[in-house]
């Protein structure tokens, strides 16, 4: 049985590195994308169980990625964890409207994010 695959879309290399590290430790297979274009490319090539999506991305924004995901029949049930920050309520409510599954606020707790990814991945595999 292959590992559960998770895609991290985040433009900050250090955050990508930390997220990759903790999720790999939790036995996920992790792919990363530093911008929206790369994220969409990866989504079209592989099947992911969970998508972790930063909202503030250069170029194609996180919201654009989310909208693309939800409008794709193959991806419309993919759980999406959106990384937000306090003080960005407008972005959060927009993400909710576009069909974000969960929200995690930066700076996040490693434990919380791993638990959340496990939950959603389990839900999908059922």
């Amino acid at each position: 049985m292959s590992k559960t695959r998770v895609l991290i879309v985040e433009d900050e290399p250090h955050i990508v590195e930390s997220l990759s590290f903790i999720l790999q430790r939790a036995d996920f297979e992790v792919d990363t994308a530093l911008d929206g274009t790369e994220a969409l490319r990866r989504l079209s090539r592989h099947i992911y169980s969970v998508l972790i999506l930063d909202i503030m991305l250069p170029g194609i924004s996180g919201l654009d990625v989310l909208r693309a995901v939800r409008s794709d029949r193959a991806l419309d049930r993919l759980p999406v964890i959106v990384l937000t920050a306090k003080g960005q309520a407008a972005d959060r409510s927009a993400a909710e409207a576009f069909g974000a599954t969960a929200f995690i606020t930066k700076p996040f707790s490693n434990t919380e994010i791993v638990e959340r990814v496990c939950q959603l991945a389990a839900g999908v595999s059922k």
Partner: peptide, 15 residues
């Protein structure tokens, strides 16, 4: 500013 502060803070906390 809050975003710019959160980004390094996120890395620091996570690591």
């Amino acid at each position: 500013v809050s975003h710019e502060v959160r980004t390094p803070m996120t890395s620091i906390r996570s690591f």
